[in-house]
Design a binder for these strands. Structure first.
Length: 461
DNA sequence: AAGGGATGTCATGTC
DNA sequence: AAGACATGACATCCC
């Protein structure tokens, strides 16, 4: 980045231009997800601290007739660890996903609309670039850059812009130096068609070189969705269209050291940053150049829509097409006499541009959701472990109570005597307690009650 | 060469 | 109804 920036600054200095007016584009700060699971109610009961007397069977399935035969093992109470365990509950969403701070979507409307002068006189800012080094017409006029015809340029739902692939660089970008540029092709007054486009871009395509744009041009892969920058409209697009100033030889010679994916070919001088379709996207969002491109996009080839826009001489930058509010957008359109073909392309560009941003946002949200759910899953696992431990502890407590009850019953039976002075057998009788506290000796075979013993009597003994 | 990630685009549904 | 937005699906590129 630093290197790229230095290079850009060097280029800027060369062209004696000011620093770009960066207008941060959108970015709705994505809300962080708060963990859904609240553990406040966890760790419910105080873990029992009873000690199972010797002989007490801690088997929870044992009946009260059993005997406690061992001391209840000390249960590791989760209480001491619960807090620590749940302290990590908060899912940590990656900051990268959450652009923060305000992100003005658009520059002031005046700035947007300022370029809209007399409808018949397209303003020079349209394809210009604040840096100046991009003020060169987009593919118009000067030789070294000519967009190739790519299959995706030949399709459009509007008959203009369909296609799926990202912008392709012309293999002829380097090879076609001096080749006729867009400006030489009069497509504006004609209906723009695939065929037109093919003709327009035939030169580069015929180079026969199959190569991706960013194989040839340095691409600044700026992983940023946090600042969609839309700087002030660039210098001139239509200056370029009419008669483009030649590319400063310094620019051609100044090849920045190639970042990732960089290759040996010089970047087009009129690069836009709009990866794909003129969107302030994730790669180069620093500022806008021609057709709304950013300075960082100087390393990128023209997008398909940018090329189409140039071919049809769309008289305003793509970033405005995409980002202006609908009212302003319509007002902008109304200020120009646009053909149906141009309008169709513009609306396609707008639709694609918005959808591209939406897709990017959607994917970010999806990743955030995954991160959030993974965090929640971890919390639930911790919670599950805690509940398992708690259940084991309750089972131990229950076993202890049963042992105590069994011992008590044995003591009662040891003191009970029938009318013959014989003890009752626990195998033949059981003790049952009523709701009022009365205790009955009940034969296990379901026979009648033989004796009623008052609880108080038991307690007295 | 295959596989996966990243990205753009389209289709569709919802608001 | 039109526009914006969300999202699944697909294609393509690149590593």
């Amino acid at each position: 980045m630093d290197l790229t920036w230095q290079e850009l600054m060097a280029i800027t200095e060369l062209q004696e231009l000011e620093a770009p007016n960066e207008t941060p584009f959108e970015c709705n700060a994505y809300h962080s997800y708060e963990p859904v699971v609240s553990f406040g109610g966890l760790g419910a009961g105080q873990p029992p601290t009873h000690t199972i007397p010797p002989g007490c069977d801690v088997n929870t399935t044992s009946g009260f007739e059993g005997h406690c035969s061992e001391v209840m093992p000390a249960c590791p109470l989760p209480g001491g660890t619960t807090e620590a365990l749940y302290g990590m509950a908060r899912s940590q969403l990656p900051c990268r996903l959450l652009p923060s701070g305000p992100h003005p979507l658009h520059p002031p409307l005046a700035d947007h609309m300022g370029m809209v002068g007399a409808p018949e006189v397209p303003q020079p800012e349209i394809l210009g670039n604040p840096q100046g080094h991009n003020c060169l017409p987009l593919g118009f006029g000067h030789g070294p850059y000519k967009q190739p015809v790519t299959p995706d340029d030949l399709e459009s739902d509007s008959g203009l812009s369909l296609g799926s692939s990202p912008p392709l660089a012309s293999p002829g970008n380097a090879a076609n130096v001096g080749a006729p540029s867009y400006a030489c092709v009069d497509v504006g007054g004609l209906g723009y068609s695939d065929r037109d486009h093919m003709e327009v871009e035939a030169g580069a395509e015929h180079s026969g070189v199959k190569a991706r744009a960013n194989r040839f041009y340095p691409v600044d892969h700026q992983p940023t969705m946090s600042s969609y920058s839309y700087p002030a409209p660039p210098a001139s697009y239509f200056n370029s269209v009419g008669g483009f100033s030649p590319i400063p030889t310094q620019l051609l010679q100044q090849q920045p050291t190639l970042p990732r994916r960089s290759q040996v070919l010089p970047p087009p001088q009129h690069e836009t940053h709009l990866n794909g379709s003129g969107l302030a996207g994730n790669h180069n969002d620093l500022c806008c150049g021609p057709y709304g491109r950013t300075k960082g996009a100087a390393d990128n080839p023209l997008s398909r829509d940018e090329r189409r826009a140039m071919a049809l001489k769309i008289p305003f930058p793509l970033h405005k097409i995409i980002n202006l509010p609908v009212d302003d957008f319509n007002e902008l359109l109304s200020k120009f006499a646009l053909s149906d073909t141009q309008l169709a392309l513009i609306r396609d560009i707008r639709r694609r541009g918005k959808n591209k941003v939406a897709a990017q946002n959607c994917r970010k949200r999806k990743l955030e959701n995954i991160v959030h759910l993974e965090g929640e899953l971890g919390q639930l696992r911790v919670q599950h472990e805690h509940l398992v431990r708690q259940r084991a502890e309750y089972q131990r407590t229950l076993a202890l109570a049963r042992c105590q009850l069994s011992d008590l019953c044995a003591e009662v039976f040891s003191k009970l005597r029938d009318e013959h002075g014989q003890p009752y057998s626990p195998q033949d009788y059981s003790l049952q307690q009523t709701g009022e506290g009365g205790i009955f000796l009940v034969p296990r075979n379901g026979g009648g009650i033989e004796a009623e013993l008052k609880a108080q009597n038991f307690l007295a003994h």
